Amino acid sequence: MASRRHVIADDLRTQISTGRIKAGERLPSEAQLAARYAVSTPTLRNALAVLQGEGLVEKVHGRGNFVRHPIRRITYVGGGRTTDAQTAANAALRMTVRTTHLPARGDLTALLRVSASSPLTEFLCISYAEKAPHSLARIYVPRDLAPADGPGESALRKGVWARLSELHPPLAEVKERISARFPTPREAATLRISSALPVLAVIRVATDTTGRVVEAARLLLPGDRADALFTHHTTSGDRRTEG
């Protein structure tokens, strides 16, 4: 027998899918819903958490629970190269960029291979679909490589290879590590997602031909709206022949 939280989630999901509750509409208060379904508030919240995890409902602090607009999916392309599909998807997103100057500390020293207190510039980038946060990134560069007026939204959209292709010494490699995890409470609040929704966490480090780290980025992509794509182009030398 289905649990009460899943029965409630199923009923609300049906109302959303049939248009009885429309995208952008606020749900009744948690107290009203708990009374309607004759359950406790914790059980009702568990039901809402199911819908939040599916990306159907978002909880806005101080305002209540809202039906989400259809979530736009994007594809993160490994190596910083951008496909036409990714460009088209990203073009529909709005991005805000906040620039902060700060000294290297904690794990940033190891990530950028610099000594403590080395001057860095951080770009906090949050993309939005409509008015809802979509994904976020924290990009760090040595202060002397940071443009005086910031990278700008259009430049950030081009990806690391395009932005760093004119460096001297030139860019040599980009290493990426991707893991799946749950967001921290702060990340969940920033992106307005459930803390039970897995995210793709990408750590990207770009170095030039001298071995200097010229950019380190921490990207956070909620799993309900992002995929990761990696393509390996083989050559004849990669193929093994059997005798």
Rank of each mutant, 00 (worst) to 15 (best):
A2Y: 11
R5H: 08
H6T: 12
H6F: 13
V7R: 11
A9V: 01
A9G: 09
A9E: 09
D11A: 14
T18Y: 03
I21H: 05
I21F: 12
A23Y: 12
E25S: 09
L33Q: 00
R36P: 03
R36Y: 14
A38T: 03
N46V: 10
N46E: 15
N46R: 15
L48Y: 05
V50Q: 02
Q52S: 08
Q52K: 10
V57W: 06
V57R: 03
K59N: 14
V60L: 15
R68K: 11
H69T: 05
I71T: 12
I71D: 06
I71V: 11
I74T: 12
T75H: 00
V77D: 07
V77A: 00
G79V: 13
G80M: 00
G80Y: 07
R81I: 00
T82D: 03
T82R: 14
D84Q: 13
A85H: 06
T87R: 14
A91H: 13
A91C: 04
R94K: 13
M95I: 11
T96G: 06
R98W: 09
H101S: 15
L102G: 00
D107M: 05
L108A: 08
T109S: 11
S115A: 14
A116M: 04
P119D: 02
P119W: 12
T121Q: 06
F123D: 12
F123T: 08
F123V: 08
C125M: 09
Y128P: 06
H134T: 03
A137T: 07
A137K: 05
I139E: 08
Y140E: 05
A146C: 04
P147L: 06
P147S: 09
G150H: 06
S154L: 05
L156V: 02
L156E: 04
R157G: 05
K158L: 01
G159N: 01
G159D: 08
A162C: 08
R163F: 02
S165A: 15
S165R: 14
E166N: 08
L167Q: 11
H168L: 12
P170A: 02
L171N: 00
R181L: 09
T184I: 05
A188P: 12
L191D: 09
R192S: 08
R192P: 01
S194G: 07
L197C: 06
L200R: 11
V202D: 03
V202S: 02
V205L: 09
A206K: 01
D208E: 02
T210K: 04
V213Q: 08
E215I: 00
E215P: 04
L219W: 05
P222N: 02
A228L: 12
A228G: 01
L229C: 11
T231C: 09
H233C: 01
T234R: 07
T241R: 14
E242V: 14
G243K: 12
